[in-house]
Design a protein around this nucleic acid. Sequence first.
DNA 1: CGGGGCCTTGACGGATGTCAATCGCGGTGG
DNA 2: CCACCGCGATTGACATCCGTCAAGGCCCCG
Lengths: 222, 222
Amino acid sequence: MLSALAIENTAYASAPMPSRDPAIRTVRPHEPLLFEGDDADHLYEVIEGVIRVYKLFQDGRRQIISFAFPGDVIGLGQGDTYSYDCDAVVFSRVRVIPKGDLMRMVRERADLGEKMLEMAAREISAAQNLSIVLCRKSAIEKVANFLCALADRRRSTAADVVGVPMTRLDIADYLGLTIETVSRNISKLRSMGIISLPRSGVVAINDMQRLRRIGDCDVGLH
Amino acid sequence: MLSALAIENTAYASAPMPSRDPAIRTVRPHEPLLFEGDDADHLYEVIEGVIRVYKLFQDGRRQIISFAFPGDVIGLGQGDTYSYDCDAVVFSRVRVIPKGDLMRMVRERADLGEKMLEMAAREISAAQNLSIVLCRKSAIEKVANFLCALADRRRSTAADVVGVPMTRLDIADYLGLTIETVSRNISKLRSMGIISLPRSGVVAINDMQRLRRIGDCDVGLH
DNA sequence: CGGGGCCTTGACGGATGTCAATCGCGGTGG
DNA sequence: CCACCGCGATTGACATCCGTCAAGGCCCCG
């Protein structure tokens, strides 16, 4: 549910797509990938790094909708124009997929359309779960849940050490909290001995079971 | 966004589907329509009444995901099994659509699959908006937004009188609030002269403009 | 060594949850 | 027809959690 859409093990990743040698775009930290209102004529599959997907409001509030990790696809649930902004959290590379190509493929190969529907279904489910996390959980539950979800997505990292590349503000804007509340609850988990902070940008999980119990991770993960 | 998925003006409603004379099922108040974990082999289009779609958690918390009104379809964003429970708020009738039939149709007519992807896209967008409503708004904003959304969906009812068939608990579980907070804020809107409560289950909107300004209805409606 | 982010921590206030009492209405039975 | 009952809604008092404001620490980089 952290992700826009995991496409591993789906037709798209394994089928012969017109992505033999597709355009790869690199995005530097804080560099925008796309803006709300842009024509939604491309999908982006994250190859490396982390992309944040968010909405900005007139009053300055920001809601991060998802952090897209390698394997996630951005732009699927979009109509003619994108309904959110995207930029990079850290140095990232994304595969650029022209939407027209994809739609043509779907028209020619209906089984592909079915697969995409499944992907969309998963994304709907993820979005609904996010709602639940946001409105039903206390601050510490949200933070614990977030760390669990990060841990479940980590690629090829040592046992219980999780990279947390985003800032406290990013986490706060994702969980619907303030920087201070996020920080306080991370400190709380640390003082409880459940996690440690060996260095900046990294969290070591000492007691995954307790963390999961607090985060109630059956919600928020598909 | 109150709804699961509005299908009016889409291919499904207008195209020649195998729904010549489909099964219609009636559901009495509080009677379940389907359970979480059931095989997701049917879609349900609400013909009459209101169906509530919700998740239950071990600790007793309940999150209502949507109230499905006539024209809405339940079950689209689902994989092999349903991920939520559904029951009726009031006496309802639903059209039962075997999913297999639909998938066969999609396989045969790729343009249909495309339409369904569009529908899924709209649902994703709605779910994301719900997240924002839930976590970024104050209680009175949520309540105002909810009433606005109900008003926008009302069918063939007099000017500014809106039927509110669900209980305060339902509203609370939808907005992520408690009964008391919902009640207090409805009272507040009443004391401000924005709405009246002529009788149980009905809200009269006296000043839609102010209600919308409070609810900031650009979020939460698509 | 100094500066500027970002993070942490503390104090405080306000919004919302919790607990509890009461109201109002509709149904039921006397 | 009226009294009683029960459920949902309302209202009040209080507690708690989280946001706001503010100060200070840590770390990287100049």
